[in-house]
Computed example of a mutant assay.
Amino acid sequence: MTLTSEPGTFEDMLRVAAELDTPDGYKAELFRGKIIVSPWPRARELLSMRSLRRLLEPHTPEGYATETAPFLFRLTASERAFGPELFVAEETAFAGPGRHVDGEALALVAEPATASERDVDWQDKLAAYGRQVPVYLVLDMRDEEITAFWDPSPRGYRSRTTVPFGHTLHVPAPFDFDLDTSGFRVPSGM
């Protein structure tokens, strides 16, 4: 579902998205002046994201939270607001009211690229995160591989590495550890 409104400010669009009564299992995000309502990932992606969360937590910098809770992060420079499937963000960013959090607080974002969200994760989110989020992980569920993007710049990420599930992926600073991706494979029949 796509909702557009009369031209307004980015903050106006955030307010409208917050006021939407989205059905359970759906989230509202802002893309290029539009509010997009889409489903959270399917149950089978949950296993991969939970595994990733458990592996990231011991390497999360002090004062940061590793979460899968549904929060909308404002990426003001890109005029986007996304609700990542997994994020690592400064704990102090959650002190305010509401469900909108400043995207400057993000240290890492991870998304499972599924058939319905593939273009969004590989294009829109990559471009917006690539300007300010230190690390972006894309778990490609169809091709069974994971890509790490890092070193953000005004033009997007300067570096990337892709490995098949089952191989080790180095997650760069501020995490700086080797990630075992063997738990990300989707069991056959799911």
Rank of each mutant, 00 (worst) to 15 (best):
W122V: 04
T147Q: 10
Y157F: 15
D151Y: 04
R158H: 07
E145P: 01
R158E: 12
W122S: 03
A128F: 01
V138K: 11
Q132D: 03
R158G: 13
D151I: 05
G156P: 10
D124S: 07
L139D: 06
R155Y: 09
S153T: 14
S153W: 03
G130I: 05
D143P: 00
V138F: 08
K125C: 00
L126P: 01
E144Y: 08
S159M: 12
P154K: 04
Y136P: 07
S159H: 15
L139C: 06
Y157T: 03
G156K: 04
V135C: 13
M141S: 11
R142P: 09
Y136F: 14
R131F: 01
Y157H: 00
A148K: 01
A127T: 01
D143R: 15
K125L: 02
T161M: 15
A148P: 03
M141N: 00
D143Q: 15
D151E: 15
V120R: 05
V120A: 05
W150E: 09
V120L: 07
Y136D: 11
P152E: 13
W150A: 15
E145T: 07
P152F: 09
D124R: 04
W122I: 01
P152T: 11
R158S: 10
S153Q: 05
K125P: 04
L137S: 12
R131K: 06
Y129I: 00
W122L: 10
W122F: 11
Q123L: 13
A127Y: 03
A148Y: 02
Y136M: 08
Q123K: 09
K125Q: 05
I146A: 02
S159I: 00
T161V: 15
V133C: 04
V138D: 09
L126I: 02
L137F: 12
D124T: 09
Q123A: 08
V120Q: 02
S153A: 11
D143Y: 14
F149Y: 15
P154W: 06
R160F: 08
I146F: 02
A148Q: 08
T161I: 14
Q132P: 00
F149A: 11
V133F: 02
Y129Q: 02
V120D: 04
L126G: 03
V120E: 08
W150T: 15
D151G: 15
R142M: 10
L126H: 14
Q132I: 04
M141P: 01
P152G: 10
D140H: 12
G156Y: 08
T147K: 04
R158Q: 14
E145F: 02
W150P: 03
I146E: 00
V135L: 12
G130Y: 04
R131W: 02
D140I: 11
V133R: 04
W122E: 07
G156T: 02
Y157E: 10
D124A: 09
G130W: 01
P154F: 08
A128S: 11
L139V: 13
V133L: 07
D124W: 05
Q132S: 06
L126V: 08
S153L: 04
Y136S: 09
V138C: 10
A128V: 07
T147M: 09
M141Q: 11
